[in-house]
């Protein structure tokens, strides 16, 4: 090996001092460039995070502008008190109640399916099944949440409704019952998955303590695990309600497009989301009253789901605070 040629000329202390200085200022320059580059990268990252805020602002801006135009032509009182919704007819009424009732009715049916089944499934996966079995069953169950909603619509209209008609002859082709039942199955994995997460977060020592006091399995589940994970379960349930209210394709396909004020689940109705689909499918000119109605309905939908989402978030934060 040859000697290092680089160090050869550096002989006298003065020369060495100069060389070291050059080296140091050199790294300082590199440092400065690097720092500049990284502050640019950091601001780009920050801007990406801000896009989500911009999205929310965009939603609120779009909805409120068209809704504002809508309420210049239709009074808010009519919107909230009229019991008919007929903006597409010659004699126009703009009462949100038929759409809202239909939305709440189908969501209630879905919750009657999703909450008990989802909670039971969560308990089964977290407390009864072996970790191995749970790790196989849970992903399969979650496939249900990944099936596109248009497929559920097909299933509700062409499988569930004909099946139910055998037992309930007066069932109409479009109805809230089968849409609600199918929607419940669709939301089941959401409830099960989030509740199971909350139950798994309950420390094992609590269960063991209860067993040591002589409690049986059922008592441990109902008196210890469920109460301890209650805020997580409540958060999951609220999120599920929000999902049901915003669900579109199942109701657009299987529940019909007849805005009527009724609580009879056997007849056709129209939810808020289905109305937006119905108008969007037609060719409504920009600025027309029909065009503005979907934004007014959309605003109502956005407000309801946002309140539910924030409520769910609050509950979830509480459950995280306790065990982390």
């Amino acid at each position: 090996m040859t000697t290092e040629p680089f160090l050869a000329p550096v002989t006298t202390p003065a020369e060495r001092r100069e060389w070291i200085l050059r080296l140091l200022t050199g790294t300082q320059r590199v440092d400065r460039i690097r720092r500049l580059r990284e502050s640019i990268i950091l601001s780009l990252l920050f801007l990406s995070a801000l896009i989500s805020v911009a999205t929310t602002i965009g939603i609120i801006y779009t909805l409120s502008i068209e809704t504002f135009h809508f309420f210049q032509r239709v009074s808010l009182i009519d919107f909230l008190t009229d019991t008919q919704w007929t903006p597409l007819f010659t004699e126009k009424h703009f009462g949100i109640w038929p759409l809202l009732t239909a939305t709440l009715l189908v969501s209630a049916i879905a919750m009657l399916v999703a909450l008990p089944l989802g909670l039971l499934a969560a308990i089964g996966l977290s407390e009864y099944a072996s970790p191995r079995l749970a790790s196989i069953v849970k992903p399969i169950l979650e496939i249900l949440a990944g099936v596109p909603t248009v497929v559920y619509g097909y299933f509700a209209l062409l499988f569930v409704t004909p099946l139910l008609k055998r037992f309930i002859p007066q069932l109409e082709v479009f109805n809230a019952l089968s849409a609600g039942l199918v929607m419940g199955i669709m939301i089941l994995p959401l409830v099960a998955s989030l509740s199971e997460d909350a139950m798994r977060a309950v420390p094992q020592s609590l269960r063991e303590g209860a067993y040591a006091l002589g409690a049986t399995k059922l008592e441990v589940v109902w008196r210890v695990v469920v109460p301890s994970s209650l805020s997580g379960i409540v958060a999951a349930s609220i999120l599920a309600i929000s999902r049901a209210i915003g669900e579109t394709m199942i109701v657009a396909i299987a529940m019909g497009q007849v805005p009527r004020l009724t609580l009879n689940p056997l007849v056709a109705m129209e939810t808020m989301t289905a109305y937006i689909v119905q108008v969007s499918l037609g060719d409504t000119p920009h600025g027309s009253l029909e065009y503005q109605t979907i934004f007014a309905v959309g605003t109502a939908l956005f407000l309801i789901t946002m309140v539910l989402n924030l409520l769910s978030y609050r509950f979830l934060q509480r459950f995280r605070e306790v065990y982390e």
Binding site: S52, T56, I59, L239, T305
Partner: peptide, 23 residues
């Protein structure tokens, strides 16, 4: 930003459609 993202994840998809039309 964090609350906002968790809310956006649960906003009904059709509302995004309305945003798309408007913007």
């Amino acid at each position: 930003i964090e609350v906002n993202i968790s809310n956006l994840a649960a906003v009904p998809s059709i509302v995004y459609g309305l945003l798309g039309v408007g913007v």
